[in-house]
């Protein structure tokens, strides 16, 4: 009996140990803005919602669309297409708001299309190209996956007021 029990315990600890492996794997969600594919760490995403009505806030730059009501919280809405200077495509069914959270900062971002959730090994992530590196950059790193590369965005920078 106790042997069995021990085995169970051993199994459980084994399972618990497993996640340590995932430590060097980064879970990301990728999405499309314009033609380009970007990714952000999954843990920074509070939620992803379909577009809802928003209210314009005066005296803000063009990429700040305004604020919207997310179940009682007033949250800023930023259009990544305008921020990244991508030509505006027409509204499509695939458009989403990604609500990101970093500490106390929360904001919603308009993206063209959601792509997928993915895991990338940390060793497959290169730092941002030198010209854009440093903490000031929006780009956290570049992930390599199979045959394509993907830009990983720095969420803290996205949520920083830029005007």
């Amino acid at each position: 009996m106790s042997n069995k029990l021990q085995e169970v315990v051993r199994k459980q600890t084994k399972q618990q140990l497993k996640p340590t492996e995932t430590d060097d794997v980064l879970q990301l969600v990728s999405f499309v803005v314009g033609e380009e594919e970007y990714a952000i760490p999954i843990l920074t995403i509070q939620e992803i919602i379909k577009p809802i009505e928003h209210t314009r806030v005066p005296r803000t730059p063009a990429h700040v669309l305004g604020v919207f009501n997310l179940r009682g919280s007033v949250i800023p809405l930023i259009d990544l297409r305008i921020k990244f200077g991508v030509p505006m495509t027409n509204k499509s069914e695939d458009m989403r708001y990604i609500v990101l959270k970093d500490g106390n900062d929360t904001a919603g971002f308009v993206i063209d299309r959601l792509n997928q959730a993915m895991r990338i090994r940390k060793k497959n992530i290169d730092p941002a190209p030198e010209a854009t590196s440093g903490n000031k950059s929006l780009i956290d790193g570049v992930g390599k996956q199979d045959d394509k590369i993907i830009t990983i965005l720095r969420v803290s920078k996205l949520l920083e007021r830029d005007f």
Partner: peptide, 22 residues
């Protein structure tokens, strides 16, 4: 309005209306 839009000129804050709009 949160960190991002804090201290906008002329805006003291926001409220949520009966219809759910801001």
């Amino acid at each position: 309005l949160g960190e991002y839009l804090k201290g906008m000129d002329g805006i003291a804050g926001a409220t949520i209306r009966g219809d759910g709009g801001v």
